[in-house]
């Protein structure tokens, strides 16, 4: 019955400058916290400039996971990486708003493609600022 927590690691894939995380399981709190530090460590290791977190299969995001995601975005931005939450289901969005978690400051996109465009645009904008 008791599954080892480490067995259920959520894979983080690196493509170009970005990390892609697709959450496919209903996470319990410990797994959510573990994922948060896992992503931050990966940002440090790879120097990724953006993170796409796909939650399109998540049927429920409660206050804990919501807080984890928005905290994640803030932490990553201090480390100079932007986080985009991708593919939230309408029911999840409504529930989050009703819970009172409006996640200000967190970037979202309808799907992976749009999220990727968003990150690329941001990276370009940063480049222009430099020159």
């Amino acid at each position: 019955m008791n599954i080892d927590l480490h067995e259920k690691r959520i894979p983080i894939i690196k493509i170009g400058n970005f990390l892609i995380v697709s959450i496919q399981v209903d996470m319990h709190d410990k797994l959510a916290i573990q994922l948060q530090s896992q992503i931050l460590e990966e940002i440090e290791k790879t120097g990724a400039k953006g993170v796409l977190i796909d939650i399109s299969v998540l049927e429920m995001v409660d206050s804990f996971i919501g807080r984890m995601l928005s905290g994640m975005a803030t932490m990553a931005s201090i480390m100079d990486a932007s986080v985009v939450i991708v593919g939230m289901q309408p029911a999840v969005a409504i529930t989050l708003v009703e819970l009172g978690l409006e996640m200000p400051g967190v970037d979202t996109a309808l799907n992976m493609e749009k999220g990727m465009e968003m990150l690329e645009k941001r990276l370009k904008d940063d480049d222009y600022k430099l020159y």
């Binding site: 049927e59 429920m60 409660d62 206050s63 309408p90 029911a91 529930t95 819970l99």
Partner: peptide, 17 residues
């Protein structure tokens, strides 16, 4: 409906935590 399902599941998740 799917939204009410999500509402009640999320509410219970808060209570269980």
């Amino acid at each position: 409906g799917i939204i009410d399902q999500t509402r009640v599941t999320t509410a219970v998740s808060e209570l269980l935590r």
